[in-house]
Amino acid sequence: MIAVSVQNLVKEYPRPDGTTLRAVDDISFSVEQGRIFGLLGPNGAGKSTTIKVLTTLLPPTAGTVLVNGFDAVAQPLQVRNSLCVVLQENAVEMFLTVRHNFLTFGRFHGLSSAAIERRMGRAVELFGLHEVLHQKPIDLSGGVKRRVQVAKMFLVDKPVVILDEATTGMDTFNKRATVNAIREEARSGRTIILTTHMLEEAEELCDSIAIINHGRIVAGGTMDDVKKMGLQMFYLTLKFNEIGKELQELVQKFAPVKLDIVDNEVNVTVREHHTALDILSLARSTGALKHFEITTASLEDVFVELIDRKRAAEGR
């Protein structure tokens, strides 16, 4: 079942000089129920605008957005009833205690006080908020405020959760807790849409992603699809007891994309899988090979490559 469907979405903002800025330019994607979808892109790419349309904060200029089967323009209330959102901006009640933050949030989402109290325990435990439960966010650090904001999402069980840069400002421990909680929620059938700058996080979490730049999707699909689409690269790391002078010449014959030799370590980047294996055979034949490792392109490599390609295509 498709939980979120975005078809040919366009969002334009009027500029003071009378022209328009097209922040989102004809993008389409869909997310199945219980899956984690990542929307990636540099600053100003159109991620947050897309999220604002999804959450009914902004009306689209054109296109269709369906959340849980409801149209974001025609049925905004039903859409809002189907989701909960962590916006990019900090959003906590500064002058209410953390406990009261949970109580008010739960009430807005239709929970009784007893139900909120029951669910609060899990959210508090998950995000380590026991010690600050009776403190006001105005007295807490930015990272803890963010934890409070994210923890609220785990108080309610709306089918779609939207997280706009949710882990920004969190320390490693809490990032880990958030990532684990997101995974658990997806396993329980909730659909997660997240935007992040942290590509490792997206790589670790997402079932599928869309890379967006200047309002357009430059790559989309499963993580493997995107990696293949963006960059077919193999990274070979070879460690030797000692390196003979002839090795560099022999490796150069394979025309690698990149070759670095530092001390007794050789790092080679090649485009073909069989080339990597051939170089590995060559390395073994020297009898001095101590350790080797072959990896494929990371999401970060793909991301940088795709954005660079787009910039080059636009002559920038």
Binding site: T56, L57, L77, N81, E89, F108, H109, G110
Partner: peptide, 14 residues
């Protein structure tokens, strides 16, 4: 200023 205003607008109410 607290950012909560925009979150309110995503809550399930008119």
């Amino acid at each position: 200023d607290n950012g909560i205003f925009y979150e309110f607008l995503t809550y399930p109410m008119t």
